[in-house]
Each structure stands twice: as C-alpha cells, then as structure tokens.
Design a protein around this nucleic acid. Structure first.
Lengths: 229, 229
DNA sequence: CATATTTCATAGTGCTTGATATGAAATAGT
DNA sequence: ACTATTTCATATCAAGCACTATGAAATATG
C-alpha cells in the first residue's frame, strides 16, 4: 500500500518545497520533515476531515500561522502527508516491480499490508484506506484523489498478472481483473480488520488463506539459469 | 452485511419508539419511517460525522426541532439508521443460519455483499464499512459500536466454520479464524472497491476468486436422505 | 367556541472549525 | 548598530456545526 509516483501529489509537493533560497530573517523554530511526520500520524489515526487544526498544531508543535506559511492549507498539508506515506522504502511499485512473478507480487503486497497495518509505532490500518472513505461534499476531491491512487495500484497489479499470463505463469483463462481486485479487496479489508483490533499474526494467516485463491501454475516459466559445475 | 440483533442498537430503537399513546395535538407532518429511510441514504453516502444536520433536514424534509423531538439527537438518529440497515429481509444472520454448510454461508455473504454494495437505488458500498472508519475522538463510541457489529458477524461466521470442521465438511486443520477473517476482509474491501466505482459484475467475479481459497471438502457430510423408489 | 395538547417554522444559542490580521522577535547584510 | 527580511505568538475572523428557545398553527376534547 505504498507507492512513489502520483503526478498530482508529487507536483503539489514540489511546488511547495521550491523555496530553498532564504537570505535573512528569523529561522524556523521547527523541523519541517519532523512536523510533517507528526501530521501524518494524526491524519493516519483520525482521517482527513476528522482531524482538526487544533490536533495538528498540538501534535506538530507548530502554531497555525506557521503551518499555513509552510504547507499552504489543510488540504495541501494532507496531500503532502499522503506523498510522504507513499514515499517509503518499500512501496507498492517497488514490490510489484521487484517481484519475479505476479504471484510473488500479490504475496508481497499482502504481506507488506499485514505488517504495515499492524506496526507498533504507527496507527493501525492503511492511511489511504481509511482517511477519506466517507467524507462531506467539501472533501470530494480528496476522496477521489485517494481512490485514483488505489485504482492505479490495482491497475499495476493487474498488468503484472496479465504479463504473468502471457509468460505462462498463470492459466490462459485467468481473470486478471478479478484476481487483482481480490488482492486489493483483501488489503483494504485487512486495514479495517487491523483497525478493529486484529493481530499481525492473524493478518498474516489471513494472507495465506487469500493466496490459496491464486491459480496454480500450469507450466513453470523456465528462465535460463547459470549452471555451476 | 446485515443482521438483526444488536443489543445496544435495538434497545435504543425501542426506547425511542415507545410513545404510541397520543391523545390530541397537531399531527406529525412527516412519516417517521420514510424520514428515517431518507436519513439512512444520507448517512450511507457521507458517513456519520461528515453528514450535517442541514443535509439531513433537507433530505428528510423535516425541520431540526422535529428531528430532535422524534429521534433525540444525531447519534441516536444514526443508531436507528444502523438498526434499520441491519433489519432487512436478508441479513448476515439469516444467511449464516440458513446456509446448509459453512461454505454456503461464506458464498452467500460474499454474493449478498457484491449485490448490496452496488445496488442501483442505494449508495455504493456498505454503511457499516464506511460510516465511521476514521472519525474524531468525539465519535469514538459510534466507531467502536460499528466495529463490534462487524466483529459479531465475523464471530458468527467463524463458529459456523468450526461447526463445519466438526461435521467433516472441512479439513481438521482448517484455520477457522483466518478463514472467517478472509471472508470479512473481502467484504470490507468490496465496499471500498464499490465506492471507487467497481461494477457489480466485477465484484461477483471477485467473489468467485475469493471462494477458491475455501478448503476442499475431504469427505462430504452425508445426511440421511429420503430415498425414493 | 374554548381549552389543552402537540407539532410546527423561525430564528437563534454557544461552540468549533479552518484560516488570518497584527505586531513583536530573531536573524542576515551593510 | 541599523535596516531589511522572515517567522513568531497572540488574538482573532467569518462560517458552519449540533442543538434549542419561542411563539404560532393545528388537532382532540369539553
């Protein structure tokens, strides 16, 4: 449930950060990245709309005017938070790209979700899955932004599956759309289960169950392997 | 994703409705059940906290004082809405109770979710799954109330699976906890996919994929069948 | 018709929200 | 030290929130 490239968010982030040329003036009394990380935890816990600026200022240790000077407004701050959330070392993109097979990609995504949703020093669940599922009309754009991120990840997994079918890792009649949808649904659902108190062990066992729905490989794709001796 | 019996909610509903003895006075200008149904649709779409009383009064066609006279406050109105949502003809309880096997129960729950989350005359997704996933501290009690409903359904499915194992419908080493968790996760996740625009067809195909993770019956439970001729 | 009772519509309550106006404080350059 | 520049803390802003006080309107009963 992590990814690096989202055009809108990354763009917004860069435009905000493009002010490295300070000549004089009072220095900032807070570390921008630290404050952003604190904000991420608050948003992660309460979602976008339910998080008030009071909570943000308390958690970040920054007064409202400084927040608005540094991040723009609440929406831009949240989008930067999402970009930070999606910029970790292990992302959905890196998992899918780094997986040898489509099956490994799905398994990697599920396991990463099970681990990440029950981390001991982070809020439970997925920030993308629970931040703006239900929101007022005023936050409809944020909602659709998160939805497009989810759809993009699903599309990437689906294309990995399609390539797997072409590589004969998977049966020719594989329903790539439903298969990718199932993995995404399990991930989204695990976020809710984690929020409801499910343990990491349970989510990992749940992952094994979910992977049993994976089609059996008819013919293992034979790659040229380096023979030794 | 529907159920009838939740002690707290049902109790709250009954206490509110216990005022059938009117002797005189101006009659109500609205139908209580109709207004409650309208409120359900609004909450279903925007969730608990993000739904304002302005939206409720507009949708229900009832002014604020009448709402408070009829339902108490926003929280009680929402709990009545949840009770209404959980009082349909086909509920999680009826599906599980009416299923011959644990497998049929899981399949029935998944199919009912796929259908119910993409109904043409209702908001997309599940009211329980998306109403209070992320909320402020003020709505923590509503959040945990919905979580307990979800856990109760999962527990019921799990016990059905355990009984299935004892009846030799399922292998002895079946992980009932993970199996029930998987079904619940897929249901919760389908709610998000439905909200993100997934079609009913896709969710139904997704259901078939999810059911492939179901353990294969080693020995079919033989019930005494009436032999004819 | 007169009275009691109940609900109605209007207008407002205090509170919180996201976002700022204002001037003091802290730096760099000269 | 003086000025320019930037950020700071304080105190607020208008708007929206859930909720309600008040009196008029509509019924049943006498």
């Amino acid at each position: 449930m992590r990814s690096t490239a989202n055009s809108f968010i990354v763009t917004a982030m860069k435009t905000v950060k493009s002010a490295p040329l300070r000549k004089s003036g009072r220095p900032l009394s807070f570390d921008r990245d630290t404050a952003l990380n604190k904000a991420m935890h608050v948003f992660w816990q309460h979602g976008y709309e339910a998080t008030s600026l009071n909570e943000l200022t308390s958690a970040m240790g920054v007064t409202p005017p400084s927040i608005y000077a540094a991040f723009g407004d609440k929406k831009k701050l949240f989008l930067e938070v999402v970009a930070l959330y999606l910029s970790g070392p292990i992302t959905a993109d890196t998992i899918i790209n780094g997986a040898a097979t489509a099956r490994d990609a799905a398994l990697g995504l599920l396991r990463a979700a099970a681990m990440g949703f029950t981390g001991c020093d982070t809020p439970r669940g997925c920030l993308l899955a629970s931040s703006a599922l239900s929101c007022s009309a005023a936050a409809a754009d944020v909602q659709s932004e998160l939805a497009s991120i989810r759809r993009r990840i699903e599309a990437k997994l689906k294309s990995k599956i399609v390539r797997g079918v072409r590589a004969h890792e998977l049966p020719a009649d594989t329903d790539a759309d439903a298969l990718a949808g199932h993995v995404m649904a399990v991930i989204q659902g695990m976020s809710t289960l984690a929020r409801d108190g499910a343990s990491q062990k349970k989510l990992l066992r749940l992952t094994e169950v979910a992977m049993r729905s994976w089609p059996i490989a008819l013919a293992a794709k034979s790659r040229p392997k380096r023979m030794i001796a």
